[in-house]
Design a protein around this nucleic acid. Structure first.
Lengths: 248, 248
DNA sequence: CGTGGCGTTGAGGTCTTTCAACGAGAGTGG
DNA sequence: CCACTCTCGTTGAAAGACCTCAACGCCACG
């Protein structure tokens, strides 16, 4: 869990695409970056672009730790990031898995209240905190967008509290699979990516790996889902999966 | 759980204090209201005051239900409110207990994502949603304050996820008591109010009433806390209580 | 004085965890 | 190429923390 020294480069400003750490994908990833930032910043896009740094984070590398000074904010443009808190004795609770487009580091505090680590290789936009805050002053629309996102995150957090406090192991796993399928916009034929380890799933659902493994096997055996391999699944029976998730 | 018809009155505008449902406390509660709203609105106070309605909510009455159209936002000025989500079969998860000064109903959605109910008799300021949003447009400082509060709430939610997902019953109860004591700014001699029922505590900590009762008794028996009565406690041994809470 | 909600306590049950073993696959180095 | 090691994932058996069911005391209330 060493600190990220992930390749950092200033945002593209000239016309010719530079070859960065992303190699040939660089121009493509720039397009995606702009698309994600536009969703975030709207009319403030140009100014946001000007303070954007691009970061590549290899799988397993951590972005920052709980307690680190919160010097940057991020948006994820590609890959998956996990966000978690730990107890002194090593117990861990993953509070979220981030997908492209998600915002990270919304902290009005001096230091991060949680740690963040790459699940898969990831690409992020990094914004220096002070410059981002200055941008916020000039663009109320950006602030409103952030408030809206914070509001959504809060709703998701409350849903997760319901899961952790009141759902059985079977319901937790079903809810998790269903949520993942929905976020990835999967029909019942398209396989859903499950890139995180069973340990990560367990720490997200407040269970042990063994229980997670058993429940996934049970779901497979009952024909609710199918698994082409251990890191992809198909929702075979959405109705039964939803029922198993105890949707409220 | 009927809907709140709690006495609603327009905010004071004249000079002479009207006698409202709060009776003789009205002027006092107006002072408190303004103080709370100033913390929220800063320089926008006057405009906020102009759209403020005061509500009195008796203990046990609910303010709104999950799914209701989100027509209002609130701040609590006195008493305690609980916020919760439910599953179709009746299982309940309380996601927070609100104290005076706390903001409620921060939803950029059409409807509330949770229910809210008074734990004790409560006084609130109610802001019509559309007028509040219009105010937000004109006062970026107010928006920033909201973002800051949302950010704090998110941090608290993550802390609670850690509790629900990874802490033992003993640790949960200890964390809860400690958190309550801190929020009420209690020294080790001043009793801390515990106005909610054991059922509420259980639904907040993801436990059963019986387990909550047993753990509270155990804490009492071990001399970590003392209880003058069933709804107040004293932190006798802060160090041991903190240790029992598995602080991270 | 009966009734009902709240809180506590006891005994037994069960769901999840703990402990343990094993197979598959990836990376290493001789 | 082949041991060797390590992580990941799965499965089984046993243990335990918390839940369920039940009974009881207390207090407010009609």
């Amino acid at each position: 869990m060493r600190r990220a020294e992930g390749a950092v480069e200033p945002a593209e400003q000239g016309t010719a695409p530079r070859v960065g750490p992303c190699g040939v994908l660089c121009e493509d990833c720039r397009v995606r970056t702009i698309s994600v930032c536009r969703a975030l910043a709207g009319p403030a896009l140009d100014e946001l672009e000007a303070i954007t740094l691009r970061i590549r984070l290899p799988a397993g590398r951590n972005l920052f730790d709980e307690g680190d000074p919160a010097e940057s904010l991020f948006t994820l443009t590609e890959g998956m990031i996990k966000v978690f808190k730990m107890l002194p004795d090593g117990r861990r609770q993953i509070t979220g898995f981030l997908l492209p487009g998600d915002f990270l580091g919304l902290a009005f505090f001096r230091s991060y209240a949680y740690s963040a680590e790459a699940v898969t290789d990831a690409l992020l936009c990094r914004f220096p905190r002070d410059r981002f805050m200055a941008l916020l002053e000039r663009h109320p629309a950006l602030e409103k967008e952030l408030l809206s996102r914070a509001s959504s995150e809060l709703a998701a957090a409350q849903e997760q509290m319901l899961l952790l406090g009141r759902k059985s192991a079977r319901e937790r796993v079903a809810s998790f699979l269903l949520g993942l399928a929905r976020r990835q916009g999967a029909g019942s034929t398209k396989p859903v990516a499950l890139p995180m380890s069973r340990w990560d799933i367990a720490d997200y659902l407040g269970l042990t790996v063994e229980t997670v493994s058993r429940e996934i096997q049970a779901a497979k055996a009952s024909g609710v889902i199918a698994m082409p391999d251990r890191h992809h699944f198909l929702v075979v029976d959405p109705r039964r999966l939803a029922a198993a998730a105890a949707l409220g």
